[in-house]
Design a protein around this nucleic acid. Structure first.
Length: 417
DNA sequence: CTTGACTGCCC
DNA sequence: ATTCTGC
DNA sequence: GCAGAATGGGCAGTCAAG
């Protein structure tokens, strides 16, 4: 099988285009090929099926234990009513900040394989799953879950940065012991050879409940049924208070749809006008910028470095490469070039890996949003912004009006509970 | 043997 | 991951 | 509305220089 090295959206697209051409099937054929690929991502196999049995053969390609399925993903929406309008009855779940794991368990072959969100095999990472045979009521299953590190004493879930310290090859067992993972299972894609992806959500949930015996390591994830936007809001608030990233809302009758399709699954991190995990934006000063690649090379800028005053120095806490339109990139470059400096200004503290292509005087203030403030091993400030993006240019503000170090510390403290 | 630059993959 | 853009 | 292409922080892993 060719699974493993291929990335979605490249080689197989070309192959399927060619296949479409050969069989002169046009667009509907392409769509069918794509859909088949999502539940059996092996272009070689699919090509063979089409050659031998034609398009009709594709109907017999089914979800199979041991062959990864492209995981279902969420759309993002920040309005409760809109979410409910789009899907009617829905299930509301917690949004965990961990790592996606698709578990394939085959009792008879004594096989336990896992795959990541991008279909990478990750089996060696999770030795705790060796005991699956005790926890699963069935001989063959595919489960979809989020694995999160947890504190053995308090039972509380740990931050992403801790979860992801899990080793991948060597010394896996040690980290598994010191930072155990809990697998929150929220879906089941097949059971004993039968595909369940076409079953509605609530039916799959029934199977899940029967199949997974709850224990320290693996837990059927909790869900709440509702069709009321206010109820969704209450749950979302509750989850945020509990320290989770937000909520995932799923169509009650929805099939398991690989990839990001329609409004079947929706995530919400912060509601319109309200605040999510990190409630405030920061007004930061641009310290330099990087020449861009691809399309951005044309603008002469791909991202810029931002920071703030700490004592007598300017320290970086993030790079920003999104949130600007193409026009804004062009305009910003022109503006920044007016205060370009040949050398790094003496009062800048920026570590090597973050040194920009072009230094500028600390003059331009930008409002930056982020999901979280984290401890940083890279940025000179010792902290960094997770998922930084530009909100707007603060032309009304000068560098002296930027967010202060003290304010950032306060915000960081609040977001750390 | 340690360290740092770099890549690939998580989010 | 987030965001913008061309289709 | 979707796919594609820009970009972020930060982890483990690899490999070459010191």
């Amino acid at each position: 099988m060719v699974i493993g090295k291929l990335r979605l959206g490249f080689s197989e697209k070309t192959i399927f285009d060619a296949l479409s051409q050969m069989t002169s099937g046009g667009k509907s054929l392409r769509k069918e090929l794509d859909n088949t690929f999502q539940i059996y991502p092996d272009p070689g196999y699919i090509t063979q099926v089409v050659k031998e049995r034609g398009m009709a053969g594709l109907k017999n390609v089914r979800v199979k234990t041991g062959v990864p399925v492209v995981p279902a993903l969420c759309q993002r929406l920040n309005n409760y009513r809109e979410i409910v309008d789009k899907m009617g009855e829905a299930a509301v779940e917690r949004k965990y900040d961990g790592t996606r794991v698709q578990i394939h368990f085959n009792r008879l072959k004594n096989e336990i394989r896992t795959y990541t969100r991008n279909l990478e095999e990750s089996s060696p990472m999770f030795p705790e799953l060796f005991q699956m045979n005790k926890w699963i009521m069935g001989d063959e299953v595919i489960l979809d879950c989020e694995a999160v590190g947890y504190d053995k004493k308090t039972g509380k879930v740990l931050p992403f940065q801790i979860t992801i310290t899990r080793k991948r090859k060597h010394g896996v067992a040690e980290t598994a012991k010191s930072i155990p993972l809990r697998f929150f299972v929220f879906d089941i894609l097949s059971l004993n050879g039968r595909s369940l992806i076409e079953e509605p959500y609530f039916e799959r949930r029934k199977f899940l409940t029967k199949v997974v015996k709850k224990n320290e390591t693996i837990v059927p994830d909790e869900y709440f049924k509702t069709d009321d936007p206010v109820e969704v809001q209450k749950l979302h608030d509750k989850f945020l208070k509990e320290g989770f990233e937000g909520a995932v809302i799923k169509m009650w009758n929805g099939e398991y749809l690989p990839g990001r399709q329609g409004w079947n699954w929706v995530k919400i991190k912060e509601a319109e006008g309200a605040s999510g995990k990190l409630s405030d934006t920061l007004d930061l000063v641009i310290l330099g910028y990087n020449l861009g690649k691809g399309k951005r090379a044309g603008f002469g800028m791909g991202a810029f470095l931002v920071g703030l005053r700490r004592g007598e120095s300017w320290v970086s806490i993030a790079k920003v490469g999104t949130g600007l339109t193409d026009e804004e990139f062009k305009g910003l470059k022109i503006k920044l070039d007016k205060s370009k400096t040949k050398e790094k200004p003496k009062d800048y503290l920026v570590s090597g890996s973050l040194v920009p292509d072009v230094w500028v005087e600390p003059l331009v203030v930008v409002e930056i949003a982020a999901d979280e403030i984290t401890k940083s091993p890279n940025h000179a400030g010792g902290i960094a912004l997770r998922f930084p993006r530009l909100i707007k240019f603060r032309e009304d503000k000068g560098p002296k009006d930027a967010t202060t170090w003290k304010e950032v510390e306060e915000i960081a403290k609040l977001s750390l509970n």
